[in-house]
């Protein structure tokens, strides 16, 4: 039985007051331009997996499960180092209109590249570690949320890593830089920068830049991101410590 064609409700569009025209532009949730959303992190969300984590950044909710190290598929050739397999899925109700998740098909490979640099693949040769992420609600800055939550899940599973990977993104709207954009801010951005960073080793595993930027602004945006990542790294460590101390 084919479902009849349906269209989503067109929400009453609020006038997007661009900062170019309006000098008194305030972010919709009242944050400052350089203020991140509060993070809520919890490990051990899914008991079926070796390790799992749940993260909430404002209205962006992500759950990640890690399975492994387990036997690689028989079709794969022998490999002296381990393999990391990442997959990101969006729930059908996560976006404002149903079926919009096809814009984010490349998240799986981007997650893989961000985590690859941090995981010690030599510690589990011939086997695969599977990282599966499900975005339950997409409220802006989805990829940084997925990366941070995934590295927390990997730590919960006991996979050896050089360091936790924290991630943040900055949007450039007109003349101002805002960090951790929400969904409506991402829609009217001119450019964006996403950084995945290992705070203790001070190394960047992945940096993605889109749109038009001038050199000076890139430095400024990168500094903002690294600062936010370090703070997020601290929060992730506290969460892991709490999980361990509450279980013993």
């Amino acid at each position: 039985m084919a479902s009849p064609a349906s269209y989503a409700l067109r929400r009453h569009q609020q006038q997007r007051r661009r900062p170019l025209q309006d000098d008194n532009w305030v972010r919709s949730d009242g944050r400052g331009f350089h203020q991140c959303r509060p993070a809520f992190l919890r490990t051990g969300a899914a008991r079926a997996a070796s390790g799992s984590a749940y993260a909430e950044f404002g209205s962006t909710k992500v759950i990640v499960s890690v399975f492994g190290p387990r036997e690689s598929k028989k079709a794969m050739k022998y490999s002296g180092i381990g393999r990391l397999n990442c997959n990101v899925n969006f729930a059908t109700f996560s976006t404002a209109t149903r079926g919009q998740e096809s814009d984010h098909k490349d998240f799986s490979s981007m997650l893989h590249k961000a985590l690859e640099g941090a995981v010690l693949l030599e510690s589990f040769p011939k086997t695969t570690v599977d990282v599966f992420a499900l975005v339950l609600e997409s409220g802006g800055s989805d990829l940084p949320a997925v990366i941070s939550c995934a590295s927390l899940a990997l730590a919960d599973a006991g996979i050896m890593m050089y360091d936790l990977v924290a991630s943040a993104s900055v949007s450039c709207i007109g003349n101002s830089l805002i960090i951790d954009p929400a969904a409506e801010e991402e829609d009217c951005q001119d450019g964006s920068l996403t950084v995945a960073f290992m705070p203790s080793r001070r190394e960047i595993t992945q940096l993605t830049l889109t749109g038009e930027w001038s050199t000076g602004r890139i430095h400024e945006a990168t500094e903002l991101c690294l600062d936010a990542c370090s703070k997020l790294g601290e929060i992730m460590r506290t969460c892991l410590k709490q999980a361990v101390s509450s279980s013993t």
Partner: peptide, 12 residues
């Protein structure tokens, strides 16, 4: 987790 999204369609 169950969630409902409403869309508008023309009935049969």
């Amino acid at each position: 987790l169950a969630a409902i999204k409403l869309e508008v369609m023309s009935p049969s």
